[in-house]
Nucleic acid binder design. Structure first.
Lengths: 104, 104
DNA sequence: AGTACGTGTAACCATTTGGTTGTAGATTAT
DNA sequence: ATAATCTACAACCAAATGGTTACACGTACT
């Protein structure tokens, strides 16, 4: 999970994820869109791949990158779970009040 | 957004968020739960505060920390938006096919 | 065969991160 | 008044990040 959130903590990488979710793109096609070096973009893609947010498919000399929505869903699930803790933050208190042993 | 995801990219910090979402806790009460130094936990809380994931309320000599679900929702919203791109990844193609000028 | 292209990796650099210890200020307890 | 507690912050350190340039290797083009 650390790697997923860490990978998403960079605007360039979030942008790459958004692009490759709508359609496969080669690494060099991605690199052409950013003002940094090819190597930098290649490293960003490697980080995303390490986090499972992106999958590479080799084809000849190029690698096509596509997004993996499953991993996004995992991260979103964790956030939803945390928000659930907030929503149910009084449940323990409710349990106490509902406890028959306290009912006298 | 960078700071939100970066703050969540650490297991200790995610744990802190989970704890303070269910109820306020002082910084030292939090620190007592982890095996690192007080200063380390204090820094983690500061990172979470900088990301807006957590809010501190001063009371006497201690600061009570509570979670801020709004920021979590923002992050979750971004993920949902990205997943939406995936879900609608053929919409542009659909638009092309639906284009009357191409219907001949 | 030779050249150009796409990718990965290594070496390097500046900055950030996650941890430590120590110190200082403010508040509370004795 | 003194001591203990809670918090913040500074200085330091090792490791990770995000970027660079240069090079090596496999594939495609002419």
């Amino acid at each position: 999970m650390n790697r997923i959130f860490r990978a998403l903590a960079d605007a360039t990488r979030r942008d790459i994820v958004a692009r490759v979710l709508t359609g496969e793109q080669s690494v060099s096609a991605l690199a052409a869109r950013y003002e940094m070096s090819f190597a930098a973009v290649q490293k960003h893609v490697a980080v995303l791949e390490g986090a499972g947010l992106v999958i590479k498919r080799p084809s000849g000399r190029e690698r096509f990158v596509r997004g993996n929505p499953e991993r996004l869903a995992r991260a979103r699930g964790l956030l939803a779970q945390l928000e659930g803790l907030w929503r149910d933050r009084f449940s323990q208190l409710d349990t106490v009040f509902a406890d028959p042993s306290l009912r006298e």
